[in-house]
Amino acid sequence: MASLSPSFFFLIFLLLLNTSNIASSTLPKFPAILVLGDSTVDTGNNNFISTPFKANHYPYGQEFPNHNPTGRFSDGRLVPDLLASGLGIKELVPPFLDPLLSDEELSTGVSFASAGSGFDDLTTLASRVIPLSQQLNYFKKYVKKLHRVVGEEEAKKIVSGALVLISAGTNDFLFNFYDLPTRRLQFDVTGYQDFLLQKFQDLIKELFDLGCHNFMVAGVPPFGCVPFQITAKFKNTSARTCIEEENKDAGGYNSKLTGIVKQLQESCRGSKIVYVNIYDPVMDMINQPQKYGFVETKKGCCGSGLVEVGPLCNRLTPPCANASEYLFWDTIHPGEVAYKHVTHHILDHMHMHFFQSTTTTSPPDNVN
């Protein structure tokens, strides 16, 4: 048998090296991640404001490193954490209001999000959490602080290159239209969708004017399947099923949102605005739970799984034995396992969107 020449092994080495480089470059590179929205992306800002909507107590965070409750409304990490880790930015995204926030953490990104918030300022009136309009003000303070830390030119590069993640809208519908019908005195559901989407457009335009160029915008999930909503609408707790009318409204909102994203992509030249379809992945987990290892999708893991959320999810309402088998951690928020599936879905698709040139006015990309 003929011996293999050294050049053969050298070619194999080059092939393996090239394959490794391709694998490492399949995801876009961002210097920072900046997050605005609600409890799905709030990494602890509510800890530092006067509101009952907090998750800085047991049993929240039981799957978090050192089992610490951090203010995240889940048993572990949220999508911003998992996304930042998957993109190689950092392992965890800190809350902007943390007084111990380091300069290094500041320069690689923070979350401005607040649990219970929405695009509509009225949504936060009773809860005293931070609406998106105020989060934008915090963003402006962040930019000024970043200028002092790294200098004006470097700050501009960080903001311009950062991935800006926005996730909001669900609380506006649940707590300002369905459960507490404040806005229903003023709007039908179509009108309220348009009202929220105008707020969203204004937010994107302001962030763009502040120098942001890479946006990832999450649609709303099938909020008619949230355990809290099911409990609120059904007197018979054993007959638990999704509220189809509310899911239909969620789908209608998302459909309009994709059109708005297209318009914004055309008007915000040089930007990249990607719509993220959250609805279908979550609905797939509900319809095919066994595919994801879930055994319960209509109740939360905390306590009875019917009403426990925030302050009602506590030491007197211990969690289920195996949270990984539950889609929802409490009666509103998914657990870390579900968030991991959503994040994998995002990462699997985002490279094909952000690798494309941002200097064209092509239609928006959708992470479906």
Rank of each mutant, 00 (worst) to 15 (best):
S3V: 14
P80C: 09
F30D: 07
L132K: 05
Y60R: 01
M216G: 12
P318L: 02
H333P: 09
G37C: 06
F13K: 12
L306I: 10
S255C: 09
S50T: 13
E336L: 07
R72S: 08
N46V: 05
F195Y: 15
L306C: 05
L101R: 08
A115Y: 00
D42G: 10
P28F: 07
L197Q: 01
P222W: 07
R77P: 02
I22T: 12
L196E: 13
P319W: 02
A84W: 04
L132C: 13
G293T: 10
A84D: 06
G310V: 05
L15C: 14
E104G: 08
A218F: 15
F234Q: 13
R184V: 03
L146S: 05
V226S: 01
L165N: 05
H353R: 06
K299S: 04
L97R: 06
R148K: 14
G88I: 01
I49H: 06
E154L: 11
P221H: 06
T237W: 09
V129R: 03
L185C: 03
N68I: 13
D103L: 07
K235V: 14
E63Y: 11
T123G: 00
F177K: 10
I230E: 02
V150H: 07
A84K: 04
V307Y: 11
F175Y: 13
I158N: 08
K157N: 14
D38N: 15
T190N: 13
M1W: 02
L203E: 01
G61H: 00
L15E: 01
G251N: 09
